[in-house]
């Protein structure tokens, strides 16, 4: 007799869950939507163009790579859509489109597929692509346009520095109130990171859907707050500027590149926070979120090893 389905023998726990990769990724996309809306309001069609270009090219690169290498097609799990959207959020609004496409190539082909696709990548593809682009196209990646209230009530774009660059240069955020920083008006930055309010809505949605736990974002942001206060910086300004909220909520919580256990997440988030502040305050780059997360991504396997949990009823092995 031939079995129509193979019998799967697996150890307990025999939980069944309706979660699939695609459903989780769909939740992340939904959680990212408020920020997409905010970017459209603040930066106009240019932001939408970059988002669409990044999503389309990420999906196309993944499909092509799978086709060429003869692997199973994986674009249905929506992870390429999330990567594309996150990468677009990490780009300045006036970036030339071809650079965004190169970034998508780095994210999908080099950071993700060459290492075996989703779940096997050692670093967050969007973060790695951003860092590669920052080092490669440093001028284009640090040319910002700032949304300011226009004369007729709309939003105008002017070029200028980000709040973090102002902090580095002058020690203050250049006359912006905390509310400005929170909403994103009058503040330069990448298209998805400027509006803290929209990112927080996404955070609440992810928590509500139990896609992520609060540990990593809260500890990460808390570490940055405390450490920048100890160093005599304005902690609230540090918290609301740059890519901290975007990174802490959406990129430091990536399943395959962050530790599994809660204890591990705690260590991971503290490391991210410390590195972020160190780079912001002492480094030559004004922003350090992407470097911090990338460096902690590399340490993730070691954190996982150090925080292995004991199975219930298990005996600790003597080394």
């Amino acid at each position: 007799m031939e079995l129509s389905r193979p019998l799967v023998v697996a150890p307990s726990p025999h939980f069944k869950s309706n979660d699939t990769t695609a459903s989780i990724m769909l939740d992340v996309v939904i959680a990212l939507m408020p920020a997409a809306f905010a970017s459209l309001m603040l930066f106009g069609m240019r932001a939408l163009l970059l988002e669409v270009v990044c999503i389309v090219s990420c999906v196309v690169f993944e499909a092509l790579f799978n086709k060429v290498m003869g692997r199973k097609q994986t674009i249905g799990d929506l992870s390429a859509v999330v990567t594309g959207l996150l990468l677009a959020y990490n780009l300045p609004p006036q970036l030339p489109v071809y650079m965004a496409v190169i970034g998508c190539f780095v994210a999908i082909v080099i950071a993700k597929q060459l290492f075996g696709g989703i779940g096997n990548n050692f670093a967050n593809p969007a973060i790695l692509a951003r860092v590669v682009m920052l080092v490669s196209f440093s001028q284009a990646m640090t040319t910002w346009s700032i949304p300011v209230r226009g004369a007729e009530g709309g939003v105008d774009l002017v070029s200028g520095a980000t709040p973090l660059a102002s902090i580095t240069a002058t020690g203050s955020v250049d006359g912006l109130s905390y509310m400005d920083l929170f909403i994103g008006l009058g503040k330069g930055g990448c298209i998805g990171e400027v509006c803290g309010a929209a990112l927080l809505i996404g955070f609440v949605y992810l928590l509500f859907r139990r896609v992520i736990t609060a540990t990593t974002p809260v500890v990460y942001v808390g570490t940055v707050f405390l450490f920048s206060m100890i160093l005599g910086q304005d902690p609230v300004a540090h918290l609301l500027s740059g890519g901290l909220l975007l990174g802490a909520i959406f990129m430091a919580t990536d399943y395959s590149t962050s530790p599994t256990t809660e204890k591990g997440k705690f260590i991971f988030a503290i490391g991210c926070g410390l590195l972020t502040v160190i780079i912001r305050v002492f480094g030559s780059y004004p922003e350090g979120v992407s470097f911090a997360i990338l460096l902690m991504n590399i340490l993730t396997p070691h954190i996982d090893n150090l925080t292995k949990t004991k199975p219930f009823g298990g005996v600790k092995h003597d080394q």
Binding site: P96, Y98, I102, V132, V135, S136, S138
Partner: peptide
């Protein structure tokens, strides 16, 4: 097209 200077690093 701007060259990707990371390749020379």
């Amino acid at each position: 097209i701007q060259p990707m200077s990371i390749m020379t690093l």
